[in-house]
Simulated assay, not measured.
Amino acid sequence: MVGSVEVTALTDSEGVFYLHGIPAGTYTLTLTPDPASTFTPLIIENVVVVNGVNTDTGTSTISD
């Protein structure tokens, strides 16, 4: 959520995603798998976004 707006992105075939236009700040990122899967959402806290800089959250693995 950015304010009251939910921001979403889909991954490409390699699982990479980009969110553009997010205002600077510190966020909690929730990676939500396909609802038909048995996987549990993964929460990444304290993601710092800086204007003009790509934020790399590293590699994350969602598991069941």
Rank of each mutant, 00 (worst) to 15 (best):
M1C: 12
M1N: 13
G3K: 12
G3E: 14
S4R: 04
V5G: 10
E6H: 09
E6Q: 12
T8I: 13
D12R: 00
S13W: 04
S13Q: 07
E14G: 02
G15D: 13
V16H: 11
V16P: 09
F17V: 07
F17T: 07
F17Y: 11
Y18M: 10
Y18E: 15
Y18H: 13
Y18G: 07
Y18T: 15
L19Q: 01
L19H: 02
L19I: 14
G21Q: 14
G21M: 09
G21Y: 10
I22P: 03
P23L: 06
G25C: 03
G25S: 06
Y27H: 04
T28D: 15
T28H: 10
T28K: 06
L29I: 12
L29Y: 03
L29N: 03
T30R: 06
T30F: 05
T32H: 02
T32M: 06
P33F: 00
P33V: 01
P33A: 00
D34V: 04
D34T: 09
P35K: 13
P35T: 14
A36K: 08
T38Y: 06
T40W: 08
P41Y: 02
P41K: 00
P41G: 04
P41S: 08
I43W: 08
I43C: 05
I43Q: 10
I44S: 07
E45C: 07
N46W: 04
N46T: 13
N46K: 06
V48Q: 01
V49W: 01
V50S: 09
V50E: 15
V50M: 08
V50L: 11
V50W: 08
V50Q: 08
N51A: 12
N51M: 06
G52L: 03
G52T: 03
G52R: 00
G52H: 02
V53C: 06
V53G: 03
N54L: 14
D56V: 01
D56T: 05
T57E: 09
T57K: 04
G58F: 10
G58M: 08
G58A: 12
T59L: 11
T59Q: 12
S60K: 06
T61Y: 10
T61N: 12
T61M: 07
I62Y: 01
I62C: 00
I62S: 02
S63K: 01
D64F: 08
D64L: 03
